[in-house]
């Protein structure tokens, strides 16, 4: 550079020995471990894609679209629709429940309280799902505490079945994915500075109006992210329908499992998996498309 003589005496040693690695090469180097990890995951998905067009017994050499054709049968279509419906409803419920919790978390002043809250919210992720399913059983099972209480109060004369049906699965889906909804919502709401709420209040908005007209729309990207995460997470849920559905709620992931054990039909299982991934991605893309503009506007101003 022409100006270098102004800042550095001519002939003086450079401050550091010159590095032969260019900055962009260094960035790639920095990314390598994570790229390798992601690469393995992507390779695994591609293998699944390959198997899905194989034939049973010749997963790697055969070619057939029969596995996909099979998915068009009502048995699988029903399962796919059930899966998407439960994932969608669970996402809506989770977001509805997570919004007040996220708001509360975002407005807690004391760091200690905030940490306690966070731990409480993360609980479902920390406790083994099998263990949680026993908790559900103890509380909601036909002989569980809730039914005992209702029977004792004379409100019902037969135990209400809250488990081993869609209600049970839905509750399980909401509960297990709850942190995925709370964390982005809380983080988005923390991004809505207090002064926006105060400004709205001085302009004449009641607390409810402030929440509905300012806090909610401003944290919408976080809410959508939360809903999308819960949706995607629950669309592929396997353990919850297995443990809380009593095998009576045939979500697609359970069907995939049936194809592997005992049927050992890898192509059929892979095809179902691919369809699940593609459908989920399509719905996520759609939601991003719908809310993208608003998200960009909000991001530009923050």
């Amino acid at each position: 550079m022409a100006h270098s003589t102004l800042t550095r005496p001519v002939g003086a040693a450079p401050l550091r020995p010159a590095k032969t690695i260019s900055p962009s090469a260094r960035a790639w180097l920095f990314l390598t471990p994570s790229m390798l990890f992601l690469g393995v995951l992507i390779a695994a998905s591609l293998l699944v894609l390959r198997m899905s067009v194989g034939t049973k017994g010749a997963e790697w050499s055969g070619f057939s679209l029969a596995s996909y054709a099979q998915l068009l049968e009502p048995y699988y279509l029903k399962s796919l629709l059930l899966t998407l419906r439960l994932a969608l409803v669970s996402a809506l419920i989770a977001v509805l429940l997570a919004t007040p919790v996220g708001y509360c978390m975002s407005r807690l002043q004391s760091p200690l309280l905030r940490r306690v809250f966070l731990a409480a919210v993360l609980m479902p992720l920390l406790v083994n799902l099998l263990l949680q399913s026993y908790g559900w059983l103890v509380i909601l099972g036909p002989g569980g505490m809730l039914n005992q209480a209702l029977l004792g109060l004379g409100l019902i004369d037969r135990p209400v079945m809250l488990l081993y049906n869609q209600t049970g699965v839905l509750m399980g889906l909401v509960q297990t994915a709850f942190p995925l909804a709370v964390l982005p919502i809380a983080s988005a709401m923390r991004g809505v500075a207090r002064s926006y709420e105060e400004a709205a209040a001085t302009l004449g908005a009641s607390r409810l109006q402030v929440f509905r007209q300012v806090v909610l729309p401003m944290s919408l990207p976080g809410i959508i992210t939360g809903a999308t995460l819960v949706f995607a997470y629950n669309a592929s849920s396997f353990v919850v329908p297995l443990l809380l559905g009593g095998r009576r709620v045939p979500m697609l992931a359970v069907m995939v499992h049936d194809q592997i054990a005992p049927l050992m039909n890898w192509p059929a299982a892979s095809a179902a998996g691919v369809v699940l991934i593609v459908t989920t991605l399509a719905i996520m893309t759609f939601s991003e498309f719908v809310t993208g503009r608003r998200r960009r506007i909000l991001e530009a101003s923050q």
């Binding site: 002989g143 297995l242 443990l243 095998r247």
Partner: peptide, 20 residues
């Protein structure tokens, strides 16, 4: 009359224990 299709034996045992 089917409460569950028992995937998990321990859950089944628990349901018997609680009289369900």
């Amino acid at each position: 009359r089917v409460i569950t299709l028992g995937e998990n034996p321990n859950q089944i045992a628990e349901l018997f224990r609680t009289g369900s």
